[in-house]
Design a protein around this nucleic acid. Structure first.
Lengths: 298, 298
DNA sequence: CCATCATGTCAGTTTTTCTCACATATTAGC
DNA sequence: GCTAATATGTGAGAAAAACTGACATGATGG
């Protein structure tokens, strides 16, 4: 038997991890599955933690669980702490195995922004072993097998992530030049043209309409696509007017394949690099540096 | 025997904690003492962690240890993560036991700034159970039995702390009005007066001299005190001119007990509230709110 | 009101971790 | 150089912690 010193204020770490899982899933059973143990084991861990902290963490409410205020507070810390530990260890292990740094981003961004610039990244950091993976998911926390993701999103950022803001998102209508004759057309010209949508950004057109003083109810839904990328392909073959982030059409505008007669407007979203909490590794720092450079440059 | 899934990327948490301690103390033996186990146990934990991560973490260098680059990286995460867990648990436990929120600050600040304003804090948040403790130490991380500390310091802030910047530090010479006759004296008048110093801020006078264009070599060391508070007591009885942060002499200036004929100059230091990483509790948030209000007000 | 689903609990077992003793390696002092 | 002192590394057995599996309990919904 061992007396517990008061200064020894850290309870069993495994109990904390069990707590974190239960708090996340709001279910002892699901948490147990994730942790590869039986629900009994998790139940005991929670009880042990409650005893050690001297607070009640969950209340049974019918068939489910609800967090007490104390649990809510604790969860904020445990989720971040375990996020951090998980990623640091995963990162180390992968690097030790010679695996590349894994960066996730949406397929559209990958195809239209990243890949065309990849040669410049390679030129700057020839030995940077980067693996790009398409990752449409809005999910957070990151899977343990991804080092970082790039995505467009709006603040506030979640507490258990580190978001490096890279650039504001700017959106605007783009189309093939043949679709519009006038050099500086009035926004109302749009009303006569087919509008292309994406399911992931349903607010894009309404937002632009209202920013330009057009009647939002006039937004027609001529054609919708699952991803930005498909919408842009459609715009490129002249099917209609797409509303797209400026960064994704840079190349097409420069090459004259598309035009953006009304320019782009700022949205409240930001292009950000989402990292697990903690210090980024050297490779990630290089990546950030290059991204900043690349996004400022133009 | 259990096969380890690749996705199971979190090694033994106790091993991570052992690692964190060893990395901090650079000694298996000292870490073992802190963790209340034998050095053999810690040695095994480290080896186990190295096996699980597939990286070497320490090199024996003569009698001591040095961190590998990988260990350095890992430590950044573990220290922050365990800091966070320790404080969240300590905070919860203390609150559960009905213990007050513990705020540390220097004795001088406590006596000259905080206590005179305590009645206002009580008026605003009558049920805020706050315990103030004098804490001269510059040490970080916080002891697990303190929820936050206030201190004057210069950026950059350490990565494993959350520093809420409250106000810039402004310093200036103060003295009893009898010591100086002129209403708007020239700074050079100082040279004829005894200068009071503190050991904790040896740079205060030289900085002020050079900011005012005076010859730094002219700084005489007439009398030195261990703490700001003693220096100010000396100034109050007319022993000489003290150099003090504006916040600590507000009351004395208002009451006419002291004068600051040359005003105050900004330093690069900030008064900050140092918190462990993670979301602050509700009590701490109230405290921050009140501190902001109180420091802006004047 | 019974079938279902979820959590709580217990005794016994498995797994992990720790201790203790000894081995090894480096350094400082004589 | 040798020795004493200081550290870390390693093994077998002991101790502690965690897990399992079976059963109990409580809520929900047809």
């Amino acid at each position: 038997m061992m007396e517990k010193a008061l200064s020894q204020s850290l309870p069993s770490l495994n109990a904390l991890r069990a707590f974190n899982e239960v708090a996340r899933t709001l279910s002892v059973t699901r948490a147990a599955e994730t942790l590869n143990v039986t629900h009994g084991a998790v139940s005991r861990q929670i009880r042990q933690l409650e005893d050690q902290l001297g607070v009640s963490l969950f209340r049974r409410e019918g068939r489910g669980l609800v967090l007490t205020a104390e649990a809510e507070y604790l969860r904020a810390s445990t989720s971040q702490a375990f996020e951090q530990l998980t990623h640091a260890c995963g990162h180390l292990r992968r690097r030790a195995a010679g695996a590349p740094v894994v960066l996730g981003c949406s397929g559209s961004f990958l195809a239209r922004w990243f890949i065309p610039r990849l040669h410049r990244l390679k030129a700057r950091y020839p030995d940077l072993n980067l693996h790009l993976t398409a990752d449409e998911g809005e999910k957070w926390p990151l899977g343990a097998d991804v080092d970082a993701v790039m995505r467009f999103a709006e603040p506030p950022w979640p507490a258990d992530a580190r978001v490096i803001e890279l650039a504001p998102e700017r959106i605007g209508p783009v189309m093939v030049p043949e679709l519009i004759e006038v050099a500086a057309p009035d926004p109302s010209e749009l009303l006569g043209l087919p509008l292309l949508h994406t399911e992931s950004r349903e607010q894009a057109w309404p937002r632009w309409f209202s920013a330009e003083g057009l009647d939002v109810t006039q937004v027609r839904k001529d054609q919708s696509f699952e991803h930005l990328n498909y919408m842009l392909e459609a715009a490129l073959v002249g099917l209609g007017v797409a509303i797209a982030p400026a960064y994704l059409v840079e190349e097409d505008l420069r090459a004259g394949r598309l035009v953006a007669p009304w320019g782009f407007i700022d949205t409240s979203a930001r292009l950000g690099l989402w990292l697990p909490p903690g210090e980024p590794g050297r490779e990630i720092e290089r990546l950030i540096q290059w991204l900043r450079l690349e996004l400022e440059a133009q």
